[in-house]
Design a protein around this nucleic acid. Structure first.
Lengths: 249, 249
DNA sequence: TGCTCACATTGACGCAGGTCAAGTCGAGGT
DNA sequence: ACCTCGACTTGACCTGCGTCAATGTGAGCA
């Protein structure tokens, strides 16, 4: 964590990332990508939030924060990918989610982190001090509403994941994972048949409650059945309809 | 749903449930039990909220609301127990949680219910129209904060459940379930070695990603090993330490 | 008192997915 | 060019839990 912060690049304004504009608020798409809260904000509020933030960069495998450590920041991922996981005392691991550009870490704003977060690929994120962020929210109730609706959405996703973990076969889990990831990349990059997989098979297994070997075998089988094509750092979806049928809620 | 509402008892004030007081706000403990939001409220706000609410009674097995139906209400369970579940198209079921007295249903305030809810035992709940409740929240940002913190807590619980479903053995799941349920009943009734189980073995299985038979076998085994005693509609915990060791996060 | 019906228990057996082990492959380092 | 090491794949085997089937048990009811 300390290493993380010391290695981080010092903060250019977090929202000035849009390559299509001079200022931070001119490209709606980039704003959404950069900070999901933005569409709830007026330009002046956006500038105010901008001043509270700091852009950090993380190398692949570098830790953003660790489970049970006091949490003094909230983050918004702007590029790259982050895995979020819990550890059991005996070393078993459960990945509770992956954060992609636009995703928010620290919705709970709780005293201590309830999971670990580390970067899968080189990642940039804006950091807000929890305190400053909290004060900002106090002054903007509509933002709090937005935050609450994001947390509710997360909760709903977590419950969908409970269905996947509790009641679905290995093949259905992989299908649901691929379809879900495709839909999330679409929000970032538009329509994609080529789904990037920045995480390892082990990470996928730890997310879906499977072993590496099972993940590998099922993906090989789906490829053999012309349902997907496995490519470097990702997968190309051939038979989306079949995957959706497997994944159907 | 319609049947539900028509069978419901017409609304005496929802918060006037405290047997120890004349009015709705005099017994802090009962208030907490009746409506988890209360400790964030001033007396006059409590009375205002009271006027928005309606007390409903549900028979065992009666439906509070169904998955995918438009959601026009939020509920606070005041007595009894409710199961919350999602159904897959082929009939497989995943119980996503059980609501006990004090628990809130509809935190997400989303347009449609994301799961079904039905009563396990005769249950009473206060109902608030989503619209009126939402207006009330708009006027009280501190309440929204409270709601958000409850949703965050739910999210954290859902992630713990993901660990249970993804990475734990049948025995560990049962142990975690029993310990977790004991802790929740303690909030309602104080210290309990006798843990009430208002749900069937099937419900427990559908919550833990196991079959009825496995739940039954494991519980029988725990009983044989003097870890628990199975009693009518519940379980007495003999070796809490061992259960906690099995359940440990 | 006996019938019904939902819930629970128990046993025998099978299989999806875990475990173990032996490779293959490719990126980085020297 | 070669070495290393981590990620991935593949095969052979094993087991925890699911499946199927039989039976027990108690609440509600005529």
């Amino acid at each position: 964590m300390e290493a993380t912060e010391s290695k981080a690049l010092a903060g250019s304004p977090a929202l000035s990332l849009c390559p299509n504009s001079k200022g931070p608020i001119e490209c709606a798409q980039c704003r959404v990508r950069a900070l999901s809260l933005c569409d709830a904000l007026e330009p002046d509020e956006l500038h105010e939030l901008d001043r509270l933030s700091q852009t950090l960069s993380f190398a692949a495998r570098q830790t953003l924060f660790e489970q049970d450590q006091p949490s003094d920041s909230v983050y918004n991922v702007t590029a790259g990918a982050v895995r979020l996981y819990k550890l059991l005392p005996d070393g078993r691991r459960q990945v509770v989610g992956f954060a992609l550009p636009g995703d928010f870490l620290g919705l709970a704003m709780s005293e201590r982190n309830v999971f670990c977060a580390d970067a899968l690929t080189p990642t940039t994120a804006c950091r807000f001090s929890r305190e400053a962020y909290s004060d900002f929210l106090d002054a903007k109730p509509h933002l709090l509403r937005r935050l609450h609706s994001m947390a509710s959405h997360e909760l709903s996703l977590a419950q969908d994941q409970m269905v996947i973990l509790g009641r679905r076969t290995a093949e259905e889990r992989i299908a649901a994972f691929l379809i879900g990831l495709r839909n999330r990349w679409m929000r970032v990059n538009g329509n994609q048949v080529h789904v990037l997989l920045p995480m390892t098979r082990q990470d996928i297994g730890d997310f879906l409650g499977l072993t590496v070997e099972t993940v590998s075998r099922i993906m090989t089988r789906l490829a053999r059945e012309k349902c997907i094509v496995i490519v470097p750092d990702g997968v190309r979806l051939l038979d989306v309809a079949r995957l959706e049928r497997l994944a159907e809620v």
